[in-house]
């Protein structure tokens, strides 16, 4: 680019527009993060569906893979930050949204695993218990541990939230579209049995993260090829 070339007003305006477009169209997202979480959540959801549908138990809780995925995610985030050649104004805000989402998801898991036992204790202290009663009399009544019904719907609702914020802020339509679809999955999950919520959760992970992840990765690799 020539330094001291005399610019006409039109050329100046064209140059400004061109550079603004270049800044806006620059990606430093490698797509690995969304691909990782899309895969992990989809696999865990499908395995949970299969466990419930075919009445078997895995030797370990499949959702533990979510915990194991945190380590590579931290490494990916640090590397992406180190390798980023520029920083956009909304980067910190988007990072905060995903951090809050991560904390909230683990808080939901804590709630889901703590509240039934805590509720049973409170009921027992008050001198009553929940009983499972079969209306057709086919089985005898038996004590029932309290449970939160269709709880996975709340997870599906949570999946859409940071995805929609990212999609709208970054004007990245695959995430916006994925989040809108996920709100639809949330509504459907309120009406179907719990095991099918798991399939809807897997579909949400695919449309919110896995598919946008593939698109980001493809764009990233194409840009890298141009710069070699």
């Amino acid at each position: 680019m020539n330094t001291e070339k005399n610019l006409t007003e039109q050329e100046s305006l064209r140059l400004i527009t061109d550079m603004l477009r270049k800044a806006k169209g620059s990606y430093h997202e490698t797509g690995i993060g969304p691909l990782l979480w899309g895969t992990v959540v989809a696999v865990a959801s499908v395995v949970t569906f299969l466990e419930r549908h075919y009445q078997f138990k895995m030797p370990f809780d499949i959702w533990l893979i979510v915990l194991f995925a945190i380590v590579p995610q931290v490494i990916i985030s640090i590397r992406e930050k180190q390798n980023a050649k520029f920083k956009q104004y909304d980067d910190d805000m988007i990072d905060s949204v995903w951090l809050v989402f991560g904390i909230s998801i683990f808080a939901l898991g804590f709630f889901q695993n703590t509240v039934p036992a805590a509720s049973a204790k409170h009921f027992a202290a008050e001198g009553w218990t929940l009983i499972r009663h079969y209306t057709d009399g086919s089985q005898p009544d038996r004590p029932q541990t309290p449970m939160v019904l269709s709880f996975y719907s709340i997870y599906i609702l949570f999946y859409a939230l940071p995805t929609l914020v990212t999609g709208l802020t970054k004007k990245f339509w695959p995430m916006t579209f994925g989040a809108i679809l996920t709100y639809g999955f949330f509504i459907v999950s309120c009406y179907v049995p719990l095991e099918y919520d798991m399939l809807l959760g897997a579909a949400a992970a695919l449309v919110c993260w896995f598919i946008p992840g593939i698109i980001l990765r493809t764009k990233y690799l194409a840009l890298r090829k141009q710069h070699v």
């Binding site: 140059l15 400004i16 061109d18 550079m19 603004l20 270049k22 800044a23 806006k24 620059s26 050649k85 520029f86 920083k87 956009q88 104004y89 980067d91």
Partner: peptide
């Protein structure tokens, strides 16, 4: 023009 569109750049 480039810097006005980003927070900082290398």
């Amino acid at each position: 023009s480039l810097l006005i569109g980003v927070k900082e750049a290398e």
